[in-house]
């Protein structure tokens, strides 16, 4: 058998997906990055190792994606390192080639991808501000003492959402506190927050984009049924949350690895599941070669230097940070 592994290292979560030659998902792992991407990757790999029988599996290719894709690619020995837009789109089209619009809301960024005839024709990402992404919802759930998993259900119970200013997370928070002080119910405030986030998304990330159904909603925040409902209410069309919405990036990376291996006939450079037992280490220094003072990072396996980057001029770089 030939399997392909995809790893999506985001700011908040690290996801893994193992697919077979037909592109079916054999196993998925979703866990929190907690600011330690290498640890998260190792943990994810260990969990996957436990749940599959290694004897019947042969990983023929590995792809990485997400904001930590270059680091992840270096750590596991990836065959392809791809951006999140392409990975998400590839995974969605694999599941349903008819999809025209993807809403993807993750931990610290959100995107919209417009598809036509099975290819990406336009996309948008949030610009300077992370308003309305998963981290903010996490923070508010914590402040309201509600587990994030329950957030959506609270919103669904509301019949009278309160209007919350969603333009900026700082203002949204003060607005929510103000509404709490006035005595509004938790569920109405939470529902109001969901609506504010959707408004903000549609007015910023999706600004000027033509949104056509079918629409897929994916990323960690798609687990929040309150947000999905607000999207449907605002747009007046059905919004589908696919089964593997949390690991779509990882599935896309795996599919891209499959495409790469099949096109080139290369052997995979995957370091194998043994890497969970290896010691990884990073260290940094500030280069004083010029006034830019770049912060250079070095990655070691055991004591062997495997990569170095972070400099603008390239005099320290040991791996090519890929564009395209």
């Amino acid at each position: 058998m030939a399997e392909f592994l995809g790893i999506d290292v985001g700011s908040i979560s690290t996801n893994l997906a193992l697919i077979n030659e037909k592109g079916e998902v054999l196993h998925q792992v979703y866990l929190r990055t907690e600011g330690q991407p290498i640890e998260a990757i190792k943990k994810g790999m260990a969990e996957m190792k436990q749940n599959i029988s290694l004897d019947s599996i042969q990983v023929r290719g590995v792809g990485t994606t997400g904001s930590g894709r270059v680091l992840a690619g270096t750590v596991v020995g990836a065959d392809v390192v791809k951006n999140e837009i392409t990975s998400q789109a590839i995974a969605t089209l694999h599941i349903n080639p008819q999809v025209r619009t993807i809403f993807e809301i993750g931990g610290q960024d959100s995107k919209i991808i417009i598809l036509q005839n099975g290819i990406v024709v336009d996309f948008g990402m949030n610009t300077i501000c992370a308003a309305g992404t998963g981290s903010f919802l996490d923070q508010q759930a914590y402040r309201l003492r509600i587990p994030i998993e329950e957030f959506g259900n609270y919103a669904l119970q509301s019949t009278n959402p309160v209007r919350i200013a969603g333009r900026c997370t700082v203002f949204a928070e003060s607005d929510m506190i103000h509404k709490q002080q006035l005595g509004y119910e938790k569920k109405d405030i939470i529902a109001g927050l969901c609506e504010a986030l959707v408004r903000n998304y549609l007015n910023n990330v999706a600004k000027g984009k033509k949104i056509c159904p079918p629409i897929f909603f994916q990323g960690g925040v798609a687990s929040n049924s309150g947000i999905r409902k607000s999207f449907e209410k605002e747009l007046g069309v059905k919004v589908t949350v696919p089964e593997y919405h949390k690991v779509m990036g990882a599935i896309g990376a795996a599919l891209l690895a499959k495409e790469e291996i099949e096109n080139t006939g290369k052997e995979t450079s995957f370091r194998g599941f043994e890497l969970v037992d290896k010691e990884y280490r990073t260290q940094g220094f500030e280069c004083d070669g010029c006034p830019n003072h770049c912060e250079v990072v070095e990655i070691f396996i055991e004591d062997e230097l495997i990569a170095r980057w972070g400099d603008r001029c390239g005099k320290w770089s040991l791996t090519y940070s890929q564009v395209g």
């Binding site: 290819i119 890929q322 395209g324």
Partner: peptide, 9 residues
């Protein structure tokens, strides 16, 4: 990320 996605597209 944006450059890469733009070129891929």
């Amino acid at each position: 990320t944006r450059t890469e996605a733009f070129l891929d597209m």
